[in-house]
């Protein structure tokens, strides 16, 4: 339903590209629809990059599609190959398993494939892999907890939507806390949603009289958790660490908010990295570009917060 096919080329370019089979190259970009904040920012960065690159390279066309589910994404990819004859594909797979086959077929046909963030279930299909580091995301948060909290402290965890991403993050977080003497009271899924996180946090607060810190695994969930903590009037007891680098949270870190001491990055701008690298690989012959490009998660503190604050981003 929310599928909007955004052909960002100029009006009639389809005709032109047929009429002038010159050296025009087309890059297909397929990403999930903006159903939550992080994906929204992903869309924002993707559109911006596409716009910028189309100005920069005259011979470069883009096809950008956003999809609400894996099934639609597969159809989108088929359409791109069949009707737009793409030369390169930048794809953030909605889910790894169902998309591995279709993407493999595209790669085998000789199209350049860049996979973003969510790895495919078989290795060595893609030419380029650009991703955030989920393990680093969990570990960075975990390390901060170990550094800051005393032995015997109690924490609760709000997990995301049950996926491999969520599992990797949570396992790394638990590993970081191992042996530190910090107790994880409970973990529940807040589904990367403010409303769900609010509800779950309310119930955690009813259930546990003593909580020292909350790891919310996502900034949207952190906002919900903070709402619940403020309602209970227990903001002096605990602090919340989210993740992803949402504008509002970075701002709070920058302002020295005691409830939000730090944040952990998982930049949605990685889509820009992926598109840029792909375009560069396509337009500059002979520049080696294959491989993995892993963007580590970093800790945003009050000191460095200004580097992570993007005024124009919706996220």
């Amino acid at each position: 339903m929310t599928r909007l096919t955004l052909t960002t080329t100029l009006a009639g370019s389809l005709l032109c590209s047929v009429a002038l089979p010159a050296a025009a190259e087309t890059i297909g970009v397929s990403i999930p629809a903006a159903t939550h904040g992080w994906a929204g920012a992903l869309n924002f960065h993707a559109e911006q990059t596409v716009e910028r690159l189309e100005e920069q390279y005259e011979d470069l066309d883009f096809v950008l599609t956003t999809t609400p589910d894996p099934g639609t994404q597969i159809s989108d990819l088929e359409d791109m190959v069949a009707t737009r004859n793409i030369d390169a594909l930048v794809v953030l797979p909605f889910e790894s398993e169902p998309l591995t086959g279709p993407i493999q077929r595209i790669a085998e046909s000789g199209t350049w494939v860049t996979v973003v963030d969510r790895g495919l279930s078989q290795e060595n299909i893609e030419d380029l892999y650009v991703a955030g580091d989920n393990e680093s995301f969990g570990r960075t948060a975990g390390d901060y907890f170990v550094e800051t909290l005393d032995e015997g402290s109690k924490v609760v965890v709000l997990r995301g939507i049950p996926t491999s991403i969520d599992n990797e993050r949570v396992e790394a977080f638990q590993a970081a806390l191992d042996g530190s003497g910090i107790e994880i009271l409970a973990m529940e899924h807040g589904n990367w949603s403010r409303d769900d996180a609010f509800t779950v946090m309310q119930d955690f607060l009813s259930r546990y009289p003593e909580i020292d810190a909350v790891w919310a695994a996502d900034d949207d969930m952190a906002v919900g958790a903070i709402g619940a903590i403020e309602q209970a009037g227990r903001q002096d007891e605990m602090w919340v660490v989210g993740g992803a680098g949402m504008k509002e949270m970075v701002q709070r870190v920058q302002d020295g908010d005691s409830m939000v001491p730090v944040d952990v990055t998982y930049p949605p701008a990685m889509i820009a990295t992926a598109i840029e690298l792909t375009a560069m690989g396509l337009m500059s012959d002979g520049v080696p570009m294959s491989g993995d490009f892993i963007i580590a998660s970093e800790l945003i503190t009050q000191d460095n917060a200004d580097q992570y604050y993007f005024e124009d981003s919706p996220y």
Partner: peptide, 19 residues
Amino acid sequence: TMGIYRSLVTWLADGGTLS
């Protein structure tokens, strides 16, 4: 209308969150 309103709010919020 379900699809329409859902898209409209996404559009109003530019894919992000309206605060």
